[in-house]
Design a protein around this nucleic acid. Structure first.
Lengths: 317, 317
DNA sequence: CCCGACCATAAGACAGCCTTGGCGCTATAG
DNA sequence: CTATAGCGCCAAGGCTGTCTTATGGTCGGG
């Protein structure tokens, strides 16, 4: 590394000397001793190859080159100060931007409250939100198009090969897929069974998963569908999936129309008017864990860290 | 001195890393090793208090704060480069300015040739010229209004008190007056006597100063007049000065009109058409030394040093 | 004539910077 | 699947730069 470059420190000293009119005054202004100023000035003059100050009697005035340097120093130091201020604002959460990508149903309640808290606590921050599901959201994370991805996983899920791949999720298990990401668990919610009114289990309160073996199924998003198949196969049967849509209100509508049964996250059901449907507990209980994903480095970015905290707060109802 | 400021080196490293997309690439670009880049980046991130880069897989991309810093870095580094370039131009005599102040007759031949040589050798330099005599020119030098002052002195002159002060030079002897200045002798010229055609000494070739005791005198500038009085008193008489002007052509005109005799620098006489006058050598010979004065610090300013050299060259006919 | 302000210099302590060498990780080619 | 090359982190060592204290020299003012 070449050491003959002009450094900001040099310009600060030069400016102080010209302002103060003396080395001693500059030293007082800079909060250091006078020899330090002498040395800095000597180093600067040597690095540029020409004297920068002329001392006549008691006062020091800049030379031709000194004035040129001062002219530029003003702009350079101003730019540097502006940069420090802006970065400090970002570090201090008086500014900054967080780009959030969430799976559709997660953005209904969790995201709005978390965003609202962040914005009210740190008015300068900006939050953007797009909806996408894994693996697309993780892809965006890796591509630098988002800072935090909301996703969910099923605690017991295993990438037991064909049962997953044949259902079209087309990827690896979240546990291995996210191994290089920072995972922040937010909350877990139970999946509830949804059956039409008048269904034989409509008033049962709870139902074993295997008892629904012969029912037509309405499935959710690809990964939800994959997990459903997995759970059912663990219970000894393969579900007959008649419809698949990631639109939760549509699922509820389909069930309400008596076209089948479904297993959905409780918040998804609660956010939809349950026309003609009834919910039943499913045993054994199926749980879904909602997590926030981010890049490890991004965890240390103030705005991202703050957003993660707000998400965790909003999750701990 | 506080060490938590952003330094130009940091920005150079950051820019290189962002441009190269990796620490190693930045190190190659900067001509140093990769750990050096790591350390600089770590120091910068610590000083600003927030990460500036996120590394995803193989490539590094700037964070929010990193982009903000990059935005400012562009301007800051450009300003710094411009400053270095401009100062280098001044140091390398591709630019720079010299402010010259000369006594009136000195600028007639010496200054034009010296300026012409400087400008032809270093086209970027600028020379400004004003005319003033000591002590005004020295005053301008000390006030920072000029870089080089041309002046002259009489080798034997002594500030022998009253003889000088009573003639109105109102100051001390040059030797002490200029004690804190850098003095560059340029050349010495002889003073010649100037008498009207038809004067009794017109064809004498040379004349003793005392032989002109009774003549009416035409004197030059105040300091010239002071020295004239000094020389005459040394010869045993006090000259009767009928006219005094620092305009050499006027002096020649007055002598040509038969109104008196004068003693003038040879170059001053030669530059004027000698209408109706004759020159005679004066014995003992009276010599005048022309010098360039500058502040000691300014001697090291390239443009000033170059101008002094050109003045010396032009003097060494 | 002394005194105070200013600056240069020297010597020493200390921090920062850069380098070398070694290790783990990942991606790519054979 | 292994070998290899690229990348980055870490630790240790040398080196330069920077600050400080202490001292002396110079200049201007009481």
């Amino acid at each position: 590394m070449v050491g003959s470059m002009i450094e900001a420190r040099h310009l600060r000293v030069l400016r102080a000397v010209v302002r103060a009119g003396s080395y001693s005054g500059a030293a007082r202004e800079l909060g250091c001793t006078q020899p330090a100023v002498s040395q800095q000035m000597k180093a600067l003059e040597q690095s540029v190859g020409t004297p920068l100050l002329v001392r006549i009697g008691r006062e020091a005035r800049p030379t031709d080159a000194g004035e040129a340097l001062m002219r530029h120093a003003a702009g350079v130091l101003a730019g540097l100060a502006a940069a420090e201020e802006e970065v400090a604002a970002i570090a201090g959460l008086r500014a900054g931007r967080v780009r959030l990508v969430s799976f559709p149903s997660g953005s209904s309640t969790l995201v709005p409250t978390a965003v609202a808290r962040l914005r009210s606590g740190h008015p300068g921050t900006r939050v953007s939100l797009v909806e996408a599901e894994p693996p697309r959201s993780v892809e965006m994370l890796r591509a630098g198009e988002a800072d935090i991805a909301l996703a969910f996983r099923y605690p017991g899920a295993r990438a037991s090969a064909n049962s997953v791949t044949e259902t079209g999720t087309g990827g690896t298990d979240p546990e291995t897929e996210w191994s290089d990401l920072a995972i922040r668990p937010l909350f877990t919610d139970s999946l509830v069974g949804l059956v039409p009114e008048g269904h034989r289990f409509a008033d049962a309160g709870e139902v074993g998963i295997a008892e629904l073996a012969g029912e037509p199924w309405i499935a959710g998003c690809p990964r939800c569908r994959g997990h459903l198949v997995e759970v059912c196969e663990a219970a000894g049967f393969t579900p007959r999936i008649d419809f698949a849509t990631d639109d939760y209100p549509a699922v509820v509508g389909l069930v309400g129309a008596g076209l089948g049964v479904a297993v959905l996250p409780a918040p998804a059901v609660e956010s939809v008017r349950p026309r003609g449907t009834r919910t039943v507990r499913v045993v054994p209980e199926v749980r879904r864990e909602v997590v926030a994903l981010t890049l490890p480095d991004l965890e240390r970015v103030p705005a991202v860290a703050a957003m993660l905290d707000r998400l965790a707060e909003a999750s701990a109802v």
